[in-house]
Design a protein around this nucleic acid. Structure first.
Lengths: 225, 225
DNA sequence: ACAGATGGGATAGTATTGCTATCATTCGTA
DNA sequence: TACGAATGATAGCAATACTATCCCATCTGT
């Protein structure tokens, strides 16, 4: 059965809602592909406009600047992921099972069946791994945070922290553990691909070793609170 | 007793060795302060030159571009840190003690007594927390890696992995554990300061809670290999 | 004391980026 | 058919990220 999720985004993330027009959707769709292909720093609205067959100025009508576009894409991903977590765990009673499911979701394993209208989730996941931290590693974090731009990430982490609490009520670092498990998953995936000597995983796409590492990491810490 | 460490840098990290001239040392010293104050993206060689009282073109004689300057600074930090790890653990026999010492070093705790000629270590540590990942999160990681630009980081991680192996010979993920502990320490420190709801630590500079978290994380995983 | 190398100041200039403004055109809906 | 919203087309500007050139001071070895 195929179904697609509509993610409703915070209005501060854009100037004009990109989901409401063909051009907007193209900006998202092609933006993801362009950033994936040439990287965020090399991406410019000029290049994106050419690729789409529109003008720079038109893109500026949707997003203040390319940093805001990145924030939008990453926020979209977190919202999508949180939805998946909720959906895929809500009928599970065993918190351990929930955490197992969660780890696979974070690594985007076994999701071939998940459809989303416009967005290429695999590509977006790649972007999240390579670019997501740039979203908050800026000198205006505090201001962006005040505007709630990171709310989707925080919501996801709270959700995960909740499951952690459920599994191990005495563990005192549920929130740090939640943010850590996501971040660890992502840069270990990055290292595995680009700086493999910083990991214990073959260069091959063996995500299962990474999964095993994360599983051990998560459960040993929670089982000995 | 005060002593200062001279860190010998890989020649590929610069065009002209900044340690060999007054201007070069100023670039490093003031570069650290400028990046700390206004952030890496807002930093330009123009601004740095004005601050130093020199010309943009003169700085370009030392570093190809500001990204290379950042790589240099971060690499310097990793080399300095590895030296400290070696120095502060070489006379310890208990691997557990070594790991304890290591955690404190990573968080830059209890190092008031450490002198370094030119470099403001506290400021550099701040930069490492806020900017270090930008060094490898680029589209030219692979090329930079080929040029050995990340060697200091890799060396440090190997060193740490060695201690981990010593402490827990059966743990199968020493290298991933080494890179993880550093990265986790840093972005948890970042979150603590800027996005505290992603952590379990008060906004206050309570590095000790973070230390406690990392300690638990590290030892429970290694004690149950 | 002199030739040559080296480091750095001064000035200029170029391509690209990031962003804004204006006006015309298209197109769906009232 | 007239409206308003969305987009296209074009222009322009300030800042950034370099590169090039030339000159001058200093230091070095003979």
């Amino acid at each position: 059965m195929e179904y697609s999720v509509h993610v409703r985004m915070n209005q501060k993330l854009y100037l004009r809602d990109p989901e409401q027009s063909e051009l907007g959707r193209k900006i998202i769709r092609e933006g993801i592909l362009l950033i994936k292909e040439i990287g965020f720093e090399e991406t410019t609205f000029r290049k994106l406009a050419e690729r789409i067959g529109t003008k720079e100025a038109s893109i500026y009508r949707y997003f203040e600047n390319k940093h805001r576009l990145l924030i939008y894409l990453i926020a979209w991903y977190w919202q999508w992921l949180e939805y998946q977590v909720v959906f895929q765990t809500h009928n599970l009673t065993d918190p351990k099972e929930k955490l197992e499911r969660l780890l696979k979701l974070i690594l985007l394993l076994d999701i071939a069946h998940l459809a989303t209208d416009d967005v290429d989730i695999q590509s977006l996941h790649t972007i999240v791994i390579c670019e997501a931290s740039k979203v908050y590693l800026t000198h205006h974090v505090t201001e962006d945070n005040r505007q709630q731009l990171f709310k989707p990430y925080k919501d996801l982490c709270s959700r995960i922290a909740g499951i952690i609490q459920e599994y191990s009520p005495n563990y005192p670092y549920a929130r740090s553990r939640a943010s850590s498990i996501i971040e660890t998953a992502h840069y270990q995936a990055f290292f595995m691909q680009f700086l493999p000597s910083l990991t214990d995983f073959g260069t091959s796409r063996n995500q299962l070793q990474l999964l095993e590492f994360l599983r051990h990491l998560l459960f040993t810490t929670l089982d000995h609170a």
